[in-house]
């Protein structure tokens, strides 16, 4: 990257540097940190957060917000467990079924937001209550996937063994299948954002919706599309959560939307839309994971310190964004008297 490219991407560069610093700090200070199994471990633990945050990044890039991601994870996790464990449905059908459900839910929210000009915050807040409520209506308790054979086969079996069958051996450890799903989704999102018309329209929409419409860009399709992507990603995150924990739980993903928003913002995406990177979000998630790890290593610290650290970091990044915008404002020769 040359100097100008760096200057243009200050938020991203700042995120990457913070991540690197935290990483260096942790690896110098804690002995167990710089071990491959450990590193892979905390990436895998947060894979579902990462997947949800990737979907959310698209929404935030258009200047919108999606508060329903955590709820969708909970609903997905419990309904998939129900279908497979209690109704003995073949995962080959159950998984596409919940994915279709996620797409429909995203379409519904997107349409409400676009056609009825409702604020995304409220629509997705309502959506969050709806899906979380449904999750508890479906089942109040968590459902452990069991490997019992019923009539010679178990529907749950393939879910339970997913992470032990699909994995890539690496040194003396291995990457679980769910983490691979995370990587694949990350790569697809990168390509969609940078190398498709849809992706660029997302940026345009966030940059200036009025202009985007006058430029003849498909505003409706793009706007509804990002909510579909977000719901689809959080459904996938719910599936990953189930596979990873071998347990369906209506409470899973509670409050996750806030972590996801934090990761996206720390990753350098402006809440006002138009600026940001998918890669930034991944780094944002990584930063959250490292902070969590550091606090775990510290031992003496209450785990709630993670929250405080994230809060401080978030504040720092918002201030940074403000600063950059103010500076842009000045150099662009603009002047607004208020």
């Amino acid at each position: 990257m040359n100097l100008r490219a760096i200057k243009r991407n200050i938020p991203f560069v700042a995120t990457a540097s913070v991540c690197l610093l935290l990483f260096l700090f942790a690896s110098l200070r804690y002995k167990g940190f710089l071990k491959l199994p450990y590193l892979l471990g905390f990436i895998s633990d947060d894979a579902y957060l990462g997947i949800a945050a990737i979907g959310l990044t698209f929404v935030i890039l258009t200047g919108g917000i999606d508060l329903s991601v955590g709820g969708v994870i909970g609903l997905t996790s419990i309904s998939l467990a129900l279908l497979v464990e209690k109704h003995h449905m073949n995962p080959m059908y159950a998984i596409p079924l919940v994915l279709v459900g996620g797409v429909l839910f995203g379409t519904l929210m997107g349409c409400l937001i676009h056609f009825y000009l409702l604020p995304p915050f409220l629509v997705t807040l309502a959506g969050m209550f709806l899906v979380r409520g449904l999750a508890f209506v479906f089942n109040q308790e968590s459902i452990q996937l069991t490997d019992q054979m019923l009539g010679g086969h178990s529907a749950s079996h393939s879910l339970i063994v997913f992470n032990s069958t699909i994995k890539i051996p690496l040194a003396n450890t291995s990457i679980p299948g769910t983490t691979l799903i995370y990587f694949v989704i990350f790569l697809i999102a990168l390509v969609v954002a940078q190398f498709t018309k849809f992706g660029r329209n997302v940026y345009a929409l966030g940059g200036n919706e009025h202009s985007a419409a006058l430029m003849g860009l498909p505003v409706a399709r793009t706007k509804i599309g990002v909510y579909v992507i977000s719901s689809l990603c959080s459904t996938l995150a719910g599936i990953v959560h189930l596979l990873y924990n071998v347990k369906g739980d209506p409470t899973s993903g509670t409050g996750l939307e806030l972590d996801a928003i934090a990761a996206v913002v720390i990753g350098g995406t402006l809440l006002s839309g138009g600026v940001g990177y998918i890669a930034g979000t991944i780094i944002g998630v990584l930063i959250l994971s490292i902070i969590q790890a550091i606090i775990n290593f510290e031992g003496s610290l209450n785990s709630w310190w993670t929250r405080i650290a994230i809060g401080m970091l978030l504040l720092l990044f918002i201030l940074l964004q403000k600063l950059i915008q103010a500076k842009k404002f000045k150099t662009a020769g603009t002047f607004q008297k208020t």
Binding site: K197, N201, Y203, G207, N208, L214, M215, L217, G274, V275
Partner: peptide, 27 residues
């Protein structure tokens, strides 16, 4: 009349947005 461009994007993108050259859907 109101200059309609996307301020954060590059000049090249602003000119080609919506009708970029693609192969197999990739820019």
């Amino acid at each position: 009349q109101e200059v309609n461009l996307i301020p954060h994007l590059s000049v090249a993108e602003n000119i080609c947005l919506g009708r970029q050259t693609t192969t197999l859907g990739f820019l």
